[in-house]
Design a protein around this nucleic acid. Structure first.
Lengths: 237, 237
DNA sequence: TCCATACTTCGTTCCCGGGCGAAGCATTGC
DNA sequence: GCAATGCTTCGCCCGGGAACGAAGTATGGA
């Protein structure tokens, strides 16, 4: 007999096309209203309402009533991480986009993964931080080095707040389009926010894909080069 | 509209209780026959046959006919990793074991995660390797250091074979019971095999849980202490 | 006050898909 | 060869659950 957590319940929640579309939309990190979710899922209001009850009971989403709207978001970074892992598996198994379109390319370039940067840009950021000696292996994952602390501080991140937070500053997340890791956790989230503040990346209305502004096109590679340059190189295998 | 890989298909595959039980059983890494899977899933032969077709079409399992038996295994480490991530999510969401039992404790102690060691023992191994300076951050994940190479060689692992293999030597996998990372990849698999050869761990018939032999009880902590001792300590935060 | 909007609840329909029994094929062993 | 085993295919049944329309309940604005 098999043991372990009941994977079937979560699988069933994700296994419905409407719910899957809703969850995928929520990977943008934005809180969406029930009617917005109805639109992305292509179903009516009563249906989406029933789905929201099930997703909430399953612990995958958190809902918050605000006026006559009901704002829905993913229940946490854990959920987003697992969904990203599933997206990766689906990708590798050839379960292609339900609607392959022109902004597939934009998605691969740069997108939001719950609250941090993913896609080519996300990978480039992670690689630059690693090359610059900003990251080190910790017993429970990845951690910021002193050097990394200084680098992020120099970028204008609020480091005291980051350290104070209950949430771990660094996590890694498996990027489904690039098939390698990018930076998640508090630092990942703060970096994405900062890049948006600086006007280098701009969110889109319709999808998780991020628009890289002209300024971002110029400044981001420059930043990555600068970050990576200071490093003592990666230790040999 | 949402984009990205079609997560619903895989979710639906995992979402059926019988299929979920089958997949969980296959996390033992063993190749099981269709009738064995029927037993763990609690369904009849025709039903399991239909399930196997769907799982194979979805790319989650690989089947191989051998005589009049049909041996089924997970389609690869990628699948196992994603399933482990889902197990973690289910665990954290309070979707408890369908049959909480006495060997739940054994599962948490030491178990097979597809082909490598997981549970408390898996975490202890990872921590010891990290403390001993055997692992370093690489641009695409975790890698063995020169020191780590030497340590594993000293344990009797076939290092040339490990390096020759197409498969990455080191991967990390999110342990669902400990909520932190353990070592996967070629090295993780080779270590588990070695521990079994040495008679420190013994597989069980019925579950993924591993039996820690008396010798293992004595030697494994000793080994972990020895591995961890040589290290230069972890870099500060 | 009254209507419009956003969402939920209820009741109904309907279809997909899991399950099994019976029969059909292979493979093995006597 | 014949029976036994392991698995698949076919046909059928049945239940769960996804979807919507209509009505009900909150909130906000005119």
């Amino acid at each position: 007999m098999s043991h372990g957590p009941d994977i079937a319940r979560i699988g069933a929640l994700i296994g419905d096309p409407a719910r899957a579309a809703m969850l995928t939309a929520l990977m943008s990190g934005k809180a969406l209203t029930a009617s917005e979710l109805a639109r992305v899922a292509g179903v009516g209001a009563p249906t989406v309402s029933a789905h929201l009850v099930k997703l909430a009971e399953g612990g995958l989403i958190a809902a918050e009533k605000q006026g006559r709207h009901r704002y829905v978001r993913l229940a946490g970074a854990e959920v987003a991480e697992a969904l990203e892992a599933l997206l990766g598996l689906a990708q590798s198994r050839g379960h292609l986009p339900f609607r392959p379109g022109p902004d597939d390319q934009a998605m691969r370039r740069a997108r939001v993964c719950y609250d941090h940067l993913a896609g080519e840009m996300g990978i480039a950021l992670y690689r630059a931080l690693h090359a610059g000696g900003a990251l080190a292996l910790a017993p429970d994952g990845v951690a910021l080095t002193d050097r990394g602390h200084g680098l992020l501080d120099g970028l204008g991140l609020d480091m005291p707040a980051l350290m104070r937070a209950r949430r771990p500053a660094c996590r890694t997340c498996l990027d489904w389009s690039e098939r390698t890791h990018h930076l998640a956790g508090g630092a990942g989230a703060a970096l994405l926010t900062r890049f948006q503040e600086l006007g280098w990346l701009r969110p889109r209305q319709t999808s998780r894909a991020l628009r890289v502004t002209l300024e971002g096109e110029r400044e981001l590679p420059r930043l990555f080069a600068r970050l990576g340059a200071g490093g003592q190189g990666s230790p040999g295998p």
